[in-house]
């Protein structure tokens, strides 16, 4: 599904990713954990196609395609989805319009006709029900004046609707209270299947209690410094990042 080799990226000549290796197979859930500023969001943004970052070395392939040759919208059409750490407010554009345009853009790429307005509404309402969102979300401007938790829910709504093959979730858990976390995690779990891959970026272990990852990576200063199964996250929760960071400097 996703193969990243020696990925290095910088912004304004400041190196941020310093050689990332990562491979995710279809059906797998991977978690990336790491302290603030370690480069987690940068990795997510580079994968999604944010042009401000320069890729200085390495490769990233998604379903065998070199991602660096594709624009952000082309990556989205091929089934890559990034749930933003800070979803952007877009005043003047309704949520409904964005949801429908996003879905139609993908359908167009797949050679399908635009979705019928009534069908669309019934599909989107069904997904909203899963996330305990009421109808008013549709008619509000995209993320405008949404609380932190509402924004995150809105990201997951888009995820459920677009049914991507590779879901990158950047700190979807932050800003959610415990009930919202459970609802959002259930939404994500619904998406789990043998074909779809999920990359969970998180700061804390608590999301991983709901969505159990197959592999956990620890990122520090732009490099993966430790890898393991789910127990790595538990260990991290108990001992903090310190031992892992020291291990890195030690060798």
């Amino acid at each position: 599904m996703l193969t990243i080799k020696n990925l290095q990226a910088s912004i304004e000549d400041k190196a941020i990713l310093k050689g990332i290796h990562l491979s995710i197979k279809p059906g797998e859930v991977h978690a990336i954990m790491g302290p603030n500023g370690s480069g987690k969001s940068t990795l997510a943004n580079v994968l999604a196609g944010r042009e401000e970052y320069q890729i200085t070395a390495g490769t990233m392939h998604y379903q065998g395609i070199d991602l660096s040759t594709l624009t952000a919208d082309e990556r989205a059409h091929l089934g890559l989805f990034l749930s933003f750490q800070y979803p952007v407010e877009i005043p003047g554009v309704s949520n409904l319009y964005l949801l429908k345009s996003a879905l139609n853009a993908k359908r167009k790429h797949m050679g399908l006709e635009e979705i019928d307005a009534i069908d669309f509404l019934s599909i989107v309402r069904e997904k909203m029900k899963l996330l305990h969102m009421d109808d008013s979300y549709l008619y509000r401007d995209v993320n405008s004046g949404f609380s932190g938790g509402e924004k995150k829910r809105n990201e997951i709504l888009q995820l459920l609707l677009l049914e991507p093959s590779l879901c990158i979730l950047d700190e979807t858990d932050s800003g959610l209270d415990i009930d919202a976390l459970r609802i959002v995690a259930e939404g994500i779990n619904l998406m789990r299947n043998e074909k779809r891959s999920i990359l969970l970026i998180t700061h804390y272990q608590r999301l991983l209690d709901y969505i159990k990852p197959d592999v956990v990576h620890i990122l520090s200063e732009g490099k993966i410094v430790a890898e393991g199964d789910y127990t790595l996250a538990t260990q991290l929760e108990a001992e903090g990042y310190e031992p892992f960071l020291q291990k890195k400097t030690g060798g």
Binding site: A48, D73, F81, F84, I90, G92, V93, S101, A105
Partner: peptide, 24 residues
């Protein structure tokens, strides 16, 4: 970038943002 990451083309995304700005 947000709009483009949702599959909207550069052209459409720009137009939406301009119009949204006026629409407010």
């Amino acid at each position: 970038f947000y709009l483009r990451s949702r599959g909207l083309s550069d052209e459409i995304a720009r137009q939406l943002l301009i119009f949204g700005f006026a629409r407010s």
